[in-house]
Amino acid sequence: MRRRGIAVVVGVVALLAAVGGAVASLGGGPIGPTGKAGKMVDAELLEFFQYGGAGLPQMATVLRSRTDAKAVRAWFSTSRESEIERFQEAALERDYGREAVVVFSFGSGCTSADGVRLADYGSGQLGPELTDTNTYETCTAPFDNLAVFAVDKAKAPDDVVLAGARTGRPDPVSPAELVEFGELDDRPRGSARAAEVSQPDQFEDFVKSLPGDAASRLDADASTRGSAYRRFAFVLSGCRAETAFMVIDPERLTAEPDGGGGARCEEPEYYFAVFQIEAKYVPAEAEIG
């Protein structure tokens, strides 16, 4: 397997010293989600991060563009670990004309590892396999792992199956779901450019000053998933945009228009975009806009 840099495993020594637990197995072979070793895939390891109790999400997805590489940060929005920033920077540098980036975030119980590889389990399924593993009888907190690989696009087709994904199919590249998007008739004047709209009064305050018929086109209850989710609305400018995505990091929540194929407009076009996201992915101190 090719590596961009050294695979990073942090916090293991400190965690095990605190545990004082017995080691059930040392120097074990590859451990994958199927319980057996798969066929190694020629892939470049961009990042491997392991830490006990890191609180990483359980997800698996495929990045197919720089837009995806920006949006995926939302899964790890509450984490300030330098490895998260490094993985995103590496993903932004890839050539998506010929590559895809496969991201796995998963737990391994009381098993630590010195490395990870990408494996093919047949029937179009890819998954991460931990290597040089140690399994402990007890641990203070289970190990969380982030493994990121760059592969030839042909090895991660649209119908690829990812071990660890919620449905087997790749998870969305972001936990932020776009529920409303449209073009505005004119440039908004004196209105909020970004705001939380989780409550009805917040939603009304945002839309009432939008130009044209935008208020009548927006539905405060569209695709509502309940109190565990929060909503954020943005006014964006661009040219021939077809959609939008949310960018979330520990400091800020923003959104960007997407699509248009590099078109240039004499005057910018304006759009509204409303997203909903599970509250646990919203950093407590992040500013909106």
Rank of each mutant, 00 (worst) to 15 (best):
I84M: 04
R2E: 07
G109S: 09
A18M: 14
V8G: 07
P142N: 12
D114R: 14
P30G: 15
P157Y: 08
R80V: 13
G29C: 00
Y271A: 00
L16I: 14
A263E: 12
R169V: 06
V9M: 09
T224I: 09
C265D: 06
S105D: 00
M40H: 11
A54I: 10
G127V: 00
K153T: 05
D258N: 12
A18I: 12
T140Q: 07
R252K: 15
A141K: 09
E278T: 06
E81C: 03
C139Y: 00
A176I: 05
G27F: 05
E285R: 13
I84E: 01
V9E: 08
R169S: 09
Q58C: 06
E85L: 12
D159P: 06
D201S: 10
P57Y: 02
G55Q: 10
Y121K: 02
V282K: 00
E137M: 11
V179F: 07
V12L: 14
G259E: 08
E196D: 13
V247W: 02
A113G: 07
A263I: 09
D95E: 14
P57G: 09
Q202C: 14
G115C: 11
G32W: 00
G27H: 11
V274A: 03
E269P: 02
F49Y: 14
T243M: 07
A60P: 00
A228N: 13
A154Q: 10
T78D: 10
G260D: 14
T140P: 04
Y51L: 13
S82W: 08
A220G: 15
E183N: 06
A284V: 15
G38E: 02
D132G: 13
R86S: 09
E269K: 13
Y96S: 03
M1L: 11
R64Y: 08
D68P: 04
A100L: 10
S79P: 04
K36L: 13
V72M: 13
L146E: 01
R225D: 07
F149S: 03
V148W: 02
F104S: 00
R264T: 10
A194H: 02
A241H: 03
I277N: 00
D205E: 13
T224E: 11
I31T: 05
I277Y: 01
L210T: 06
I84V: 14
R64D: 08
R80W: 09
A222I: 15
R187N: 08
F106M: 05
A241R: 01
A18S: 15
R217N: 10
T254E: 14
A141N: 11
G97E: 10
E204G: 07
D114F: 14
